[in-house]
Amino acid sequence: MKRRLDDVGARLNKISPQHEKALQNGAPMATKRQSIGRALRLGTDLVAGVAVGTLIGFWLDRWFDTSPLCFILFFLLGTAAGLLNVFRTARELQEKQMDLVKQGKLDLGKDLIDDDNDKR
């Protein structure tokens, strides 16, 4: 039993570098799967920002009796927060993809390479 285990261990050691390599090549697929997950966040993140901001404004108005000052202010802030959420998610996605493109693992086609000189 012990010999058999050692045998399997030795064989695994031999195989695992190849396996790791194969996993690395599979990276774009894994990223695609994660991208679906992240893309699904965009919509709800935007709406949740507006909703939370508006609710906070509504409650503050009720507390301090300042209607509709806080309501309007926090509606705007909430919208900004929602946009910030979306912006962050989108930037994360783009950075991930750009890393892969630079490593030559993902081909987006010529048009999608970042060539607009925005010095990001």
Binding site: R41, T44, D45, A51, F74, A80, N85
Partner: peptide
């Protein structure tokens, strides 16, 4: 003064968007 409230609201959206997304 503008950024901090926005960041706090953005942080508070987490449980809302997390729960509403799954439920909806």
């Amino acid at each position: 003064p503008i950024i901090i409230p926005i960041e706090i609201i953005s942080y508070l959206t987490r449980p809302i968007s997390l729960s509403v997304r799954l439920f909806a």
